[in-house]
Design a protein around this nucleic acid. Structure first.
Lengths: 366, 366
DNA sequence: CTGAACTGGGAAAGCGCATTCCCACTGCAT
DNA sequence: ATGCAGTGGGAATGCGCTTTCCCAGTTCAG
């Protein structure tokens, strides 16, 4: 990568590099009209492109913003990434992407890489983990983030603070009311039915998952219902699918018992998967086992990812403004958000659709 | 962003910066054991992180790879991005993301920004356009790319070469056999039916779209069928939806005519949408108009995006190894692909699913 | 008409690192 | 003992740019 330099432009224009710099790269001092024009023409004819690395070195700021996601092809992260990208463009920055599959150790590497590139700010989008096997990784990640912040970096993390991170300057947490929303979802679902609730959760220790599970249970309790059974599985589609297979077997067994009169209660199952991709996986599993939603079981997810728009049966879920979350996080980390003192919180809302429609279930069950 | 520097580390270790550099950042010369250890310990205790900008300046290479997509939240691009990310990691580089909505002018900006950052290589994933309104933008983009390549940059573009780009050193095109595959799809679809074919294409001038349309027509011709009507619309879900609404009206009219005996022919419609998201949009439109697939119309898409996995009815499409395409493009641009001379071409395959199932259509039509 | 307060341009010192020389030293053959 | 290649470390230079500092030329108040 060679290219014409500022010095060359200056020479061609017959001015000093200092002047050329001033006219080409927005300085406080504005050189005279004639000179400016001459420089600009010289730059043009040489096809001059400022070397951002050198600029960064000199100004010690890079115009880069680092984004950490589990998987960029996951609709949840893709939506957030879109928001981040948008906000970055507003700020005239570029986004550096790192995918980590949620492993704190990898996230630490990513933060270090961002720090090496002197990224102005970092947005961490993946769910935080408190699992024992992630303990060391978390500690390292926290240390790395701490160092980054001490050096003047800005960090915004979506959802929960990184485990063990000290609340230093420049560390922002974009809280997502996972628990409250899950509770609301539970009470809305519980209000009109006496279903047997089952939760498909991620591995214990994943904050996002745990919060949603806890919230859902709380909502059930508030409705006077017993706590739901929780199936722990992978925090992704295949995790949901596996759980779905298991549940399908159970449902079919119950049907059989019902038919033969063995069973006394014939309550149906309402499944809550802690995120949409898991819900989709579970729904796919039920379908592949010949079961129908909402006839044989109802199901709800969380996030309201864009994919849901064309998923059938229409999935009940909790809508989260993912793109806005990405934007907010990015703005927060840039100090652009004037409301950093009293940040406008993320709000979502329960969205009931066909997959939990009681009437359909009832009529179909006759 | 301040941080401890190599000089500080060197001083603490009691060696020269040169030596410190040699031990910390893989040089050809390896300092002695004892000294190396001392330096490493000093670096550790200071939490030293090399300044990649300075390194880049000194070595004139950045370890960055630029990725240009239309929209990172589109499953098609998200999948490619995943592949790019993966390959980048293999190369020990980071990926810089730019989204452009397909506008050549924006793409030019992105290339310039990548060039400014001295990205080692650039991957362009979006469809190329030859629309009249994009002419100027294309020219600028081509010029920018050309300059970038002349300066030693590597460019890989997926699908078609950028309009007007001169075949300079470092310019790679990852050809996707859109036309051939579309032709194959057409002949497979045509083989067993006498449907009336309709193509939902993107705006005229979008290469990807045009190629697929052309290929499909060729396939029909080869099967002895007349050319299909082409509906031009947006190259995205909503474009597909609009076209779907129009087609639904037509189908319903045909049904009505059929019922009243007005019509002599009762051929059904087989829709080919030039990409999956358009197909999904069209399918959604049909459904919202009360029509069923494949009963009232059959439909096929292109790309086999991951979303399709859980879309019902299962959509016939042409499978493209999107992730692999991203990887390949990235490797090609890195010169890692030893097969750059004779690049292993991208291959896809027709995947017929329920949405074009004749038997279902026939039985349902009785 | 003189001195002060500006104005606008250039010289030069880094920013943090890699790398080319250069030099002192060792070990070995002559 | 002398010379020579080989080894391992440091001094210095430069990557391309920003920014302070300095200086000559102006303008205006007194």
């Amino acid at each position: 990568m060679v290219a014409s330099t500022l010095t060359e432009v200056a020479r061609l224009a017959g001015v000093s590099p200092a002047t050329a710099s001033r006219v080409l790269n927005g300085s406080a001092r504005k050189p005279g009209q004639d000179i400016a024009e001459r420089v600009r023409k010289a730059a043009d004819s040489l096809g001059y492109i400022p070397n951002a690395q050198a600029q960064g070195l000199a100004k010690s700021s890079s115009g880069l913003i680092g984004l950490i996601v589990h998987d960029i092809a996951d609709p949840y992260f893709a939506a957030i990434a879109r928001g981040v990208q948008e906000a970055a463009r507003e700020q005239g920055r570029m986004v550096l992407l790192a995918t980590t599959a949620g492993a704190p150790a990898d996230e630490k590497e990513a933060v270090a890489a961002f720090a090496a590139r002197r990224a102005d700010s970092i947005v961490i989008a993946g769910s935080r983990s408190a699992r024992p096997e992630d303990q060391d990784g978390n500690a390292e990640l926290a240390a790395e983030l701490d160092r980054y912040c001490r050096n003047g970096g800005q960090v915004a993390v979506v959802g929960h603070a990184v485990v063990g991170a000290s609340v230093s300057e420049g560390y922002h947490v974009l809280t997502v009311p996972n628990e409250e929303l899950a509770a609301t979802l539970a009470s809305e679902l519980a209000a009109m039915r006496d279903d047997h609730f089952v939760i498909i959760g991620g591995p214990a220790g994943l904050f996002t998952s745990d919060d949603r599970v806890r919230g859902f249970q709380r909502g059930l309790a508030a409705a006077g219902l017993p706590a739901a059974e929780v199936i722990r599985t992978g925090f992704n589609r295949s995790g949901g699918f596996e759980a779905g297979v298991a549940l399908a077997a159970r449902i079919k067994a119950a049907h059989a018992a019902e038919d033969s009169g063995t069973s006394q209660t014939s309550r149906r199952i309402c499944i809550f998967a802690v995120n949409d991709v898991m819900a989709i996986g579970a729904a796919a599993a039920l379908r592949s086992e010949g079961l129908r939603i909402p006839r044989d079981a109802t199901i709800a997810g969380f996030d309201d990812i864009e994919t849901l728009r064309d998923f059938r049966p229409a999935l009940s879920t909790v809508h989260l403004p993912l793109e806005e979350i990405g934007r907010q996080a990015t703005r927060r980390a840039a100090g652009t958000a004037d409301d950093d003192a009293a940040p406008s919180p993320v709000t979502g809302h329960v969205t009931l659709r066909r997959s939990t429609d009681l009437k359909l279930q009832a009529s179909a069950s006759d």
